[in-house]
Every structure is written in structure tokens, then in C-alpha cells.
Design a protein around this nucleic acid. Sequence first.
DNA 1: CCTTTTATGTACTGATCGGTATATATTTCA
DNA 2: TGAAATATATACCGATCAGTACATAAAAGG
Lengths: 210, 210
Amino acid sequence: MSPSSPSVTACAASPSRGRPREFDPDEALARALRVFWQRGYEGASMAELTEAMGIAKPSLYACFGNKEALFRKALDLYEREKLCYVKTALDAPTARGVAEKLLTGALATHCGETDPQGCLGVISAVTCGAEAETIRAEVIARRASSERAIVARFERARDEGDLSEHVDPEALASYLTTVMQGLSVKAGSGAGREALERIVATTLACWPSA
Amino acid sequence: MSPSSPSVTACAASPSRGRPREFDPDEALARALRVFWQRGYEGASMAELTEAMGIAKPSLYACFGNKEALFRKALDLYEREKLCYVKTALDAPTARGVAEKLLTGALATHCGETDPQGCLGVISAVTCGAEAETIRAEVIARRASSERAIVARFERARDEGDLSEHVDPEALASYLTTVMQGLSVKAGSGAGREALERIVATTLACWPSA
DNA sequence: CCTTTTATGTACTGATCGGTATATATTTCA
DNA sequence: TGAAATATATACCGATCAGTACATAAAAGG
């Protein structure tokens, strides 16, 4: 997102001395993201990661640091490319429109045909083998920040009058993200697209109309 | 709970030959459940399990089989003692009452003060390190069976007239379990009890009234 | 050509994983 | 007083974990 660091390649600051790298760090990171997305942080082994990325372990460590740093970079990529629907959803004209875009965006992202099922954030926040505690905390913090943005948007909606005065923006945002996280769990559990679409429709049917 | 198989001790069929066991299998299993509940199936190591159970590895393997069998027995215990609120909730007189009891039951179970936070089922269904694929399938299957029971209850409610004809029982049940699973994710992510109570209240406020 | 610099491939490290062999301790049955 | 049966404790198994040492390969600067 920030123009100063557009890609991961920036981790190699020097212009072009020494033997050139034989792989594209951005594509390698994209492949690593898929592995983390399927297996979670701890479930993804370095062997599986290196194989998917098409590189050997020393190359991985030289370019990305270690497993945790690699995961954080993958998480950045995930938020940048897969969670962008959240930002655009907040631009919808009404609170209900925001909810609709968030739900359909979550559905498209977590139940697509090319990407793994479920939400990397949910997978990483729930999984928890002691070692991954810092990762867990990081994911939870990022999620909280995005929920705050939804709260702010709903507060604006209330001020603008398209959300009833009787509805607490914070409670509504919390409820909405709960449904979204539940959707991710169901998607990761093999629920079909039609089933998830019905859930989205039901949620919107229940939505507190202005 | 059931009189035919009241405890895990039944796995030792013989009456009392040889050296007597020095630990209580039921309590050991309860302690193992807590570890699985915190760490997930793969995140729980045999070392952590044996330490929590207060026994050595050979005793564990002799009594419970292996890690996967131990997990299944722990899952049985979990459903029997922690998910019993689902069965009782289905006895509520109205569909809305069922939803209310399910939501408050989920809240009490996954956000208690003595037990680990979150839902063992959600944790196990989401976590996924290749090896645990059969465990994952088992957990998902059990969850599906309990969702079918809710669908049946809502169909009854529609037949009895306390649920609008315009509401699809299957969609409503699917929506409700989505919220419950989302609640588990939030509970496992450290959400406070008050926050979860607000979510439950919001869900019930949105509930399609008869 | 040679040095410097960076990347790669192979082979390795110690730690931990789930699971077990073996020897010993404690009980019941004969 | 054995002999059979069951449980325990210690120490180990091969496999895998994340991470690295080291030698070699390929580029740029001198």
C-alpha cells in the first residue's frame, strides 16, 4: 500500500551486485501465502513452504528472514490483495450497503475457486500451539483495527441518519464481524458456495432496516 | 452420562487382574480435554498432554490407544459435558427460544472462567496440518449432525406456526450456527464476556420475529 | 584475471515430534 | 510360594521440526 515499499523485493536494498536471484520474491511470497492459508502458521512446515515456493531453504532465509517474518510478509500480502474488499465496502453509501459488500466480499474471498477456503486471519487466530502466541496476537490486533474502521463507518451512518438511533454502532459492527468470521469457519469446513450465499441472504434479511 | 458406558474406565474390560492403575482415567481424560481445547489437536504435544494428565506416556498409550484415539475420547467428553446445552436448547417452546438458549449456551460454554476460551470443534475444524485431516473430517461431521437437529427443530417450529412461513428453516439454522461459530472465534481471540453478550443481544434483536 | 559480493545446493545441527522396547513393580489366581 | 497378568518408569526409536555451515556458482568492480 505504501509507495515507499511497493513489493517485497525491497528487502534486497543493493542495486545489483553479486549473483542475481533466480526467483521472483513476489511470486514466491504469493505461493507461501497459499500454504499458510491452507495449513495455518504452525501447520505449514518449512519443507512444504520451500517446495511450494520452488526455492531451497537458504534462499528463503536469506530473502525473508525466518518463518515468522515470512508469515508476516504473507499476512501483509493477504491484507493488501485479499482483504481489500473491506476498504471498498466502507465506501458504500449506507450502513446496509456496507454490510452487504462486506458479506459478499467475505464470501467471494473465502469461498473462491482458486484460493484456499476460509480466512487466513481466522485460521491463524484460532490455531494456537504456544510457539505461535506472538503471531496470534498480531493477527488479532490487525483484526481489531479493521473492526474499529467498521464501527467508525456505522457511527457515521447513524449521524447521517441511515442507521436507526436505537442501534449501537459498536454492537452492530461486532455482530457483523462475528457473522463474517462464522462464514470463514463454515467455508473452511467445506461448506458449499450456495450454503454460504444463503447465510449471507439470511443475514441481510435480518439486517436492522433504517 | 449414559448408563451403558458411564466412564472411560470401560476400556479396561477385565475386572481386576494384575497391578492396579494408579490414576483415574476419567480425570486424566478431562485434563487432556483442557489441553486439546487450548492448543487444538496438532498444537497439543504428547509431552504437554502427559504432564497435564499426570501420567507417563506408556500409561497413556495403554489406556487410551494413541493421540488420535485420545482426542476422540476427549471429543466425546466435550460433547457430553460441554455441548449438552444444544440438546436442552432444542426443548425450548419456540424457535426464538431455541435460538436464545443456543446463543447463551454457547456464550457460557466458550467464554467461561474455568474452561479454555473458544470452541474445541471450531479450533479443530479450522486447524489443518495434513496429518489431522481425518480428525478434521470427524469434527465437521459431528457439527453437521448437530446442525441437522437444529434444522429439524426449526421445521417443527414452522409447522407449529411459531416461525414465519417466509423463513427457510435450513437457512435460519445455518445462519444461527454461523453466528455461534463466529462467537467461538471471537471468544478464542480474547473478546470479553460483555462484548459477546452484546453480540448475542444484537443477534436476538435482529431475529425474525414470528 | 582476480577479488568481492551475493545466491544456490547439499548436508548438516540440536530439538522435538509421536510412539515403543524393556525392565521392574504390583496385583490376582493357582 | 510361585506363575500369570497388568501397570509403571526409563530410555530409547526413526521422523520431522526450524534453522544453518559450507562449499560452489555467478555476477560486478578493479
